Amino acid sequence: MKDYLISPDCISHPDSPVLSAVFQQSDRIRNTPDHQHEHGQIFGSTAGLLSVDAGHHRWVVPATHAVWIPPGMYHGLLSHGPYSGWSVWVSATACETLPTNAQVLSVSALLREAVLRATSWRDGSRSAAQNHLTEVILEEIRAARPVPLGLPMPQDPRLLKIARALSEHPNDCSPMGSWAKWAGVAPRTLSRRFVIETGFRFSEWRQRVRLLQALELLAAGQSVTNVALGSGYENVSAFITLFRQVFGMTPGRYAHSIALSSDKPAFSALGSLKS
């Protein structure tokens, strides 16, 4: 029996509303195989990282961002740790003015709050107030800024095994040789294939998955020191230097920018991940 977040009948019936939303918190890892449907979908986690497959894309996405999937595109996800997340389905007709390609999106505080409200709606017709909030959600999706924040995942099953393990435990400091032995691949092959399939050297990829976790922890209000040491960095200075190199600002400044304003996208000030 398939573990649907929402029954397909609830969104595929001719009289289904334009938008349906759901929130789920579980003590289990969620692994949704590739599938497609006629609706558009935007989803994200509230804690932890998600690995998302969408068309030819494969990303690691932090809880501070969401993924938009247009109608008809094959997609799937894997949570790294127990799943806690939300999802919104949008009718094909309403998707005509929404993005036509899969994207990692910056999520505004308004969108998060509107989705939270929508998850309490029951099936059936919508009130005038609910229809208005539906339009707010759709407009926020249109206005959301796509960001190249998702981290590419390798395709080779051996490398993918390593990448998923690192996504679950970014602070693991085992050397590359140990990971290669664990996955049954020669270290030289691992090094070469990681660059070919992700665009990053193994060490760079590991640093970036740590940074994705760091973004999430900083957004949750943890101190720079706790985030640095908890993410596997040997010292705080090394963490601050790398964070500034990749995002163009210090982690302290980033955390301060979040504290100053909750009505802007959480990462509106961040640049893209630099190679």
Rank of each mutant, 00 (worst) to 15 (best):
V107H: 02
L116K: 09
W89L: 02
V136E: 12
D123W: 04
S120Y: 14
S167Y: 04
R126W: 05
L78I: 09
G81W: 03
L116V: 09
I141Y: 04
L77K: 06
Q103H: 12
E96L: 08
N101M: 03
L111D: 11
W121C: 07
Q130F: 06
R117E: 03
S108I: 14
G81Y: 06
G81M: 06
L149H: 10
P146F: 03
Q103F: 00
R126L: 12
L105T: 02
R112V: 01
T134L: 03
A94L: 14
H169N: 13
S91L: 11
E113H: 13
S167K: 00
W121N: 05
P157Q: 15
P148Y: 05
T134I: 05
L138H: 00
P70M: 15
Q155E: 10
R158K: 05
K161V: 00
S87P: 02
Q155P: 00
L149R: 05
R145A: 11
L110S: 13
S87Q: 14
S79K: 01
L116I: 01
P148I: 00
V88W: 02
M153V: 08
V115E: 01
P152E: 01
G76N: 10
T119N: 01
A129V: 14
L149N: 05
G85R: 04
E140M: 14
R112G: 10
V88I: 13
G81K: 06
A92H: 12
E139K: 07
L159Q: 05
L98V: 09
W68F: 15
W86F: 03
S125Y: 04
T97W: 05
V115A: 03
V107D: 04
S167C: 13
Y83L: 12
G76L: 06
A128N: 14
T93A: 15
V67L: 03
R122I: 02
G81N: 07
E140N: 14
T134S: 11
L138V: 07
L151Y: 07
A118R: 07
L149W: 06
P154C: 04
W89F: 14
E139T: 15
V147G: 00
A92Y: 02
L166R: 10
S127H: 15
C95M: 15
V104L: 08
L166M: 15
G150I: 00
E135G: 03
R112A: 12
L78E: 08
R145W: 05
S91K: 04
L151E: 03
L133I: 15
W68L: 02
W89Q: 08
L151C: 13
W68G: 00
A109T: 12
L77C: 09
R126Y: 08
L160T: 00
H80L: 08
P71T: 05
H80A: 00
A94G: 05
L98F: 02
A144Q: 06
A129P: 02
P152F: 01
G72Y: 14
L138D: 01
P152D: 04
W89K: 02
A118H: 10
S91T: 10
W68C: 07
I137L: 11
S120N: 12
R112I: 14
L138I: 12
G124E: 04
N101D: 07
L166I: 15
E113S: 15
G81P: 07
R158G: 10
A129I: 05
S79Q: 04
A92P: 02
A144W: 01
L116W: 03
